[in-house]
Design a protein around this nucleic acid. Structure first.
Lengths: 193, 193
DNA sequence: GGTGCCATGTAACGCGTTACATGATTAT
DNA sequence: ATAATCATGTAACGCGTTACATGGCACC
């Protein structure tokens, strides 16, 4: 939903056309190195927003070059934007690929969970090192977006590293007794066997 | 890619059919309350994996009930699984919806970034409270997956809360001087205006 | 006979991706 | 010329979602 809502926000500033929205979005998040939005996403999203009645085609400019289809917010779009601003955003725990990998490795003799954890730790340390170096080379006053993102990434990497340590400790604890089979939960009345 | 790779891992344990895979996956990650995989995803993913040659239809069982299409790993699938185990997984920074919201709110007079931060902090505190309560009510030896996930979520929530504090500090710092316009980076040779 | 599992899917959509296509303008 | 930007899209796919559909069997 990020791009969709960001487009609403950018159109609230002023009406714009697709190409301009793309540039504005990338400027907002810190450049195309940080977040390279593909034109396809911009234009398909614009089509969906228009379909939903949140934006409308305002006018078509043509100053020598190709046509520019200018979009602007509708009242419905403005309402949607306000709701977005006032609501908190749910952190997406759960859908974590490393977690899935770890669980799969626990019940798979092809894999060693400790090895899986070590591989992940190694990668996280590399990432942490890269990010820290990058943050130190940035002017905090001019590259706002990038600093914000780097702050966040670094804090999350540190949290992940602490989590890996905790995981190992919990595994050590549990490995002294046999690994429990994951209980298959039934949804309703069990069938008699 | 989580579900896709988990299916490979589960089929490495033993050949299974779609319905069984769904149950096994949910058991692995801690139950359907944690991660409710829709049948549609299982079956479409199986079709794609078969198309890619990573799994194959093994046999069709029928013990009184409906047909069960049993899938098993191919050598290619086994290779893919091994690679998955040995590679680290990139943390997905950047595509963060709250970050986008914050940046949009900075350049939007309809919204107050401090308000946006406060709304987010409130939500994160609620989530943290809920998760902590849930973790305390779980037997760490029997509900492995849930404990792992709760640990991770809690650590990330704490990291997010610290990030929000840092954000406010950085904003205070910068607000003493006018907000810089986000620089629109050109990709190549600029057009002469 | 109803509820709910067991087991299989299809259809359509949202968000995001890569790849492709078109045509004009501008700088070297 | 040619490269690169300006500006618009389409097609097809991956992952994930909701909604719908079909049937048999078990339990009360």
């Amino acid at each position: 939903m990020s791009v969709r809502n960001a487009i609403l926000g950018l159109l609230a500033q002023q009406p714009r056309h697709g190409y301009e929205l793309r540039a504005a979005f990338e400027a907002l998040v810190g450049g195309d190195a940080v977040w390279d939005v593909k034109p396809a996403q911009i234009y398909t999203t614009l089509a969906r927003l228009q379909e939903a009645g949140l934006i409308e085609q305002d006018s078509i400019e043509q100053d020598g070059g190709p046509e520019k289809i200018i979009y602007s917010l509708t009242p419905d779009g403005s309402r949607e934007l306000s709701e977005w601003f006032s609501a908190g955003i749910a952190a997406d725990h759960q859908r974590d690929e490393f977690f899935v990998k770890l669980m799969v490795s626990l019940y798979n003799d092809q894999a060693d969970p400790y090895q899986v954890i070590r591989a992940q730790r190694k990668r996280l340390y590399q990432d942490l090192h890269d990010l820290t170096r990058r943050r130190n080379g940035i002017d905090a006053r001019r590259e706002l977006a990038q600093i914000f993102l780097l702050d966040k990434s670094i804090m999350h990497l540190e949290a992940d590293l602490r989590w890996l340590d905790l995981l190992e400790a919990r595994l050590d604890d549990i490995r002294r007794q046999p690994l429990p089979q994951p209980p298959v939960r039934r949804r309703g009345r069990p069938k008699k066997t």
